[in-house]
Design a protein around this nucleic acid. Structure first.
Length: 289
DNA sequence: ACAGGCTCCTGCAGGC
DNA sequence: TGCCTGCAGGAGCCTG
């Protein structure tokens, strides 16, 4: 499932391929769960827009768009686009099973395709999501609407003080706090479990009971693991947005996630699984206190 | 304001 | 072989 590293990799891939391209028209399916704004509004808003940049914010993929006429925005102009101001945004959340595919027009439509964006280059961007946990949102910034912002802090750049302040205020288990997107944006179940293992912190520990040293270790391990995963993902997920789209996510060498009963890589004790905050939670009872 | 539980949705794995 | 059940989880919503 896409968390910060996967979303970062996908956003980079889409940016590399689609930056400077222009949207001719868009089609949206009939599954309202996917659409934060009515599909007809999104389709109307997207038509004619130029894609200035695609980037990640939390677990969201944000398309920065210009509604200016295409003549002023030559296609595939990689240098000039930065100076143009975005006045619209398309925000894609992949949920658990969402995928963005860049395909040719004649590429067969995958099952569970809920949106399609036709591009001036002749390619198509398709949104596929079997489980319908993904969300698509369009924002027109020209009439004062707020630009999209991730709800919480950015895990890759958050400083020690802010990190400690956020988690010292919460009484919930640290695992639940890590998953709370309004605190940190981008951490999901895999990286919550893995970073807690790396920091040697039990997932049930109350967030406000952790010491300053615990929290600083957690912050650094979380950042290290996310960056490492982005590096790995960059090589194996880069084709994720290609036409085949079948290569799937990179295989991270998990230490605890979904290794229930298997020996801990550090101490050989069997990895334990509990349910916490409604999520499967994996940890080493010996290494994590 | 906060904590915690429920719900959405479908593919897949495991059991019989 | 085939059916059934339960599990996976991000995030919005509801309740206490």
């Amino acid at each position: 499932m896409p968390e910060l590293p996967e979303v970062e990799t996908i956003a980079r891939g889409v940016n590399k391929r689609l930056r400077g391209d222009r949207i001719v028209q868009a089609w949206f399916g009939s599954r309202p769960q996917c659409f934060k704004k009515p599909p007809e509004l999104q389709a109307k808003g997207l038509a004619g827009c130029t894609i200035l940049e695609v980037h990640r914010a939390g677990k969201h993929i944000v398309f920065e768009l210009s509604t200016e006429p295409a003549a002023a925005q030559p296609r595939q102009n990689k240098t000039a686009t930065k100076s143009a101001a975005a006045d619209a945004q398309w925000i894609v959340h992949l949920g658990m099973t969402g995928r963005l595919l860049v395909t040719t027009q004649d590429s067969p439509t995958a099952p569970h395709t809920h949106a399609r964006v036709d591009l001036a280059s002749g390619r198509e961007l398709r949104f596929v999501d079997p489980r319908l946990f993904g969300r698509l949102d369009f924002r027109d910034l020209r009439n004062g609407a707020a630009a999209f912002q991730a709800p919480g802090a950015e895990p890759l750049t958050i400083g020690a003080r802010e990190f400690a302040e956020i988690f010292h205020r919460r009484r919930m288990p640290i695992k639940a706090a890590l998953l709370n997107q309004s605190l940190l944006s981008g951490v999901g179940n895999i990286y919550a479990d893995e970073s807690l293992f790396a920091a040697g912190i039990g997932p049930r520990r109350r967030s406000n009971r952790l010491t300053a040293a615990d929290l600083e270790r957690l912050r650094q391990e979380l950042r290290r693991i996310l960056k490492h995963a982005i590096r790995l993902g960059g090589s194996s997920v880069s084709d994720y947005v290609d036409a085949d789209g079948e290569r799937g996510f990179f295989q991270l060498e998990h230490c605890v996630y979904q290794r229930t009963g298997e020996p801990c890589r550090r101490c050989k004790a069997p990895i334990r699984r509990i349910e916490l905050a409604g999520r499967g939670t994996h940890y080493c009872p010996n290494c994590q206190r």
